[in-house]
């Protein structure tokens, strides 16, 4: 089961790559504007100022509770999505996508529903690995050190800018000195948001299981 293999030097993979599939954190402002929040980086919809996240539509500073509440709601949404327990068959000609599970787990119950015939292998659609990755992504958004190293997953609406920068043009965005200053100024506030994600990491089986199987605790 490849899912359980320790990934080699996972930290060497860029956030853009590792969090490719992760859902974005959408924030709603008091003015009703929604925007995808991608941490301290350039966006046309919000600005991170020295005192937090500011909506570009109306200029309001989003309160910590407003941000934390929407962040935690998203985390719980994903946990619940994970626990919906959808499974699917890897045989493309079968196409079974269901929440029923056979007493063999990996055996497909097939189109006939009789648990005979299909040789495909069943697995959870939303894996614990993806859920863990989703949590890591949300935590990374408030990682001010990553922000100053410009290692955050780029926002969708910034893709064009990135392509231009890859082709040698100057990268548009926040200057390094501003990034450094913003990172320090927001360290505590963003730390509180990270603690919201931490609350679930402490629960998360994935974070502990590899250690346990290596050293055989308990």
């Amino acid at each position: 089961n490849g899912d359980d293999l320790l990934q080699p030097l996972e930290s060497c993979i860029s956030d853009a790559e590792r969090f490719k599939e992760a859902a974005t954190l959408e924030l709603t402002c008091t003015c009703g504007a929604h925007f995808a929040f991608g941490g301290i980086q350039e966006s046309s919809y919000y600005t991170v100022t020295f005192s937090g996240i500011q909506c570009s539509s109306c200029g309001t500073q989003l309160s910590s509770l407003r941000v934390a509440s929407q962040l935690e709601r998203l985390i719980r949404h994903h946990i619940s999505l994970y626990y919906a327990g959808w499974v699917e068959c890897d045989d493309v000609s079968c196409g079974v996508h269901t929440r029923q599970v056979s007493v063999y787990g990996k055996r497909c119950i097939g189109n006939t529903g009789r648990s005979v015939g299909c040789k495909g292998v069943i697995s959870y659609v939303y894996t614990d690995r993806e859920l863990y990755n989703q949590l890591l992504y949300l935590e990374s958004l408030f990682d001010v050190d990553k922000a100053r190293r410009q290692e955050l997953r780029p926002l969708q609406d910034d893709t064009e800018n990135r392509i231009r920068s890859d082709s040698g043009e100057t990268k548009k965005g926040i200057s390094q000195s501003t990034l450094d200053a913003l990172a320090e100024q927001n360290r505590d506030t963003f730390g509180a948001f990270q603690s919201v994600v931490q609350k679930y990491f402490e629960q998360c089986g994935r974070r502990y299981v590899d250690m346990a199987s290596l050293f055989n605790f308990s």
Binding site: G85, V87, K106, D128
Partner: peptide
């Protein structure tokens, strides 16, 4: 006090089988 978010398909199946 079990850890959540680590549901294994085979463990799920074991419970379903054992219930019967």
């Amino acid at each position: 006090q079990f850890r959540t978010m680590r549901q294994k398909l085979l463990d799920t199946a074991d419970v379903l089988d054992e219930q019967i």
